[in-house]
C-alpha cells in the first residue's frame, strides 16, 4: 500500500512545479469572485438577488467548486501526456500493483483539487460565516468525494483520448456542460423557470439538478446561507456520481494504460 503514497508524492511534485501558475489561478478565481459579484449584483433582478442573499454570497461557493473542478481535472492532462510520451511504460514497470497505481493517481488528483480549493473555501467562510464543526465535516467530506469524482472523470477521459487535441476538446465539452448546467453561476430555481418557459431544454434542467457540481455548491450554500435547504439527497447524489466516475476511471486507467 506504500505504493499509493509514492504515486501521490509524484503527482504532488508535478503539481507544485506549477506553484506560481497555481497561485496566479487562485488569485484570478478570487478576482472573478469579487468583480463578477459586484457587477452581477447590479445586473441581477433585485427580487432574485434578495432570494439568493446577494450575488457575492451566492457565487462564493460556486467559485470554490469551480476551483476544485479545474484543479482536480489537471491530473487528466498529465496522465494524457504520459501516455503519449510512453512514460506510462515506466510507471507500469515499477514494483506496484495496477490498482495501487490507479488509486494513487485518482487520490492524488482529488487531493490536489482539495488543496487548491482551500483558499477559496476559506474566503467563502470569511465572508459568509463559519460552519459548525459538524457542517464543516459534511462539507469537507462532500468536497472530497466530488474531488475524487472529478479526478476520476479527467483520468477516464485522458486515457480514452489518444491525442492531446482530442483530450482538450473533450475537456472543453465537459467543462461547458458541467459548468453551465449547474448551480455554480445561478440558482436551480432560475434554471427550472427557464425550463418551464421552454428556453432551456428539459434534459439540461435535469442535468443541472443531478449535476454533482450543483450538489457541491448547494451543500455549502445550505449551511452558510440557508438556501437551498439542506437535504441528504444532495450528499447521496454527489456520492453516487463521484463513485461512478471514480470507479470508471480506475477501470479505464488499469485497462487502457496496458492496452498493448
Amino acid at each position: 500500500m506504500m505504493g499509493i503514497f509514492h504515486i501521490i508524492e509524484y503527482d504532488f511534485r508535478n503539481f507544485f512545479r506549477y506553484k506560481w501558475w497555481l497561485a496566479g489561478l487562485i488569485s484570478m478565481n478570487l478576482a472573478d469572485l469579487f468583480v463578477m459579484a459586484i457587477v452581477y449584483n447590479k445586473m441581477v433582478d433585485p427580487e432574485l438577488a434578495r432570494q439568493i442573499m446577494g450575488y457575492f454570497s451566492f457565487f462564493a461557493p460556486g467559485v470554490t467548486i469551480l476551483g476544485l473542478f479545474a484543479s482536480a481535472f489537471m491530473i487528466g492532462r498529465e496522465v494524457n501526456m504520459e501516455v503519449r510520451r510512453e512514460i506510462h511504460y515506466y510507471m507500469l514497470s515499477l514494483p506496484l500493483s495496477r490498482i495501487e497505481l490507479a488509486l494513487g493517481r485518482l487520490l492524488a488528483g482529488g487531493l490536489r483539487g482539495m488543496m487548491y480549493m482551500s483558499p477559496l473555501l476559506l474566503t467563502t467562510f470569511a465572508f459568509l460565516g463559519i460552519p459548525s464543526p459538524f457542517q464543516l465535516l459534511i462539507i469537507l467530506a462532500a468536497l472530497f468525494l466530488l474531488a475524487m469524482g472529478i479526478s476520476g472523470l479527467s483520468i477516464a477521459i485522458a486515457v480514452s483520448t489518444s491525442s492531446f487535441e482530442k483530450f482538450v476538446t473533450a475537456r472543453g465539452l465537459v467543462y461547458y456542460v458541467l459548468f453551465f448546467c449547474s448551480t455554480i453561476f445561478y440558482p436551480l430555481s432560475l434554471i427550472q423557470s427557464l425550463g418551464e418557459e421552454g428556453i432551456m431544454p428539459q434534459p439540461l434542467v435535469t442535468l443541472a439538478a443531478i449535476n454533482p457540481l450543483s450538489n457541491g455548491a448547494d451543500i455549502i450554500r445550505s449551511f452558510l446561507l440557508g438556501i437551498p435547504a439542506f437535504t441528504l439527497d444532495m450528499v447521496m447524489n454527489l456520492a453516487l456520481f463521484s463513485a461512478l466516475f471514480a470507479t470508471t476511471a480506475i477501470f479505464a486507467y488499469m485497462k487502457i494504460i496496458q492496452r498493448t
Binding site: Y10, E86, I87, Y89, Y90
Partner: peptide
C-alpha cells in the same frame, strides 16, 4: 529496467 528511450518524469 533501463529503457531504450529514457523515461524521465517530464518535469523533473
Amino acid at each position: 529496467i533501463c529503457f531504450q528511450e529514457p523515461k524521465l518524469l517530464w518535469v523533473s
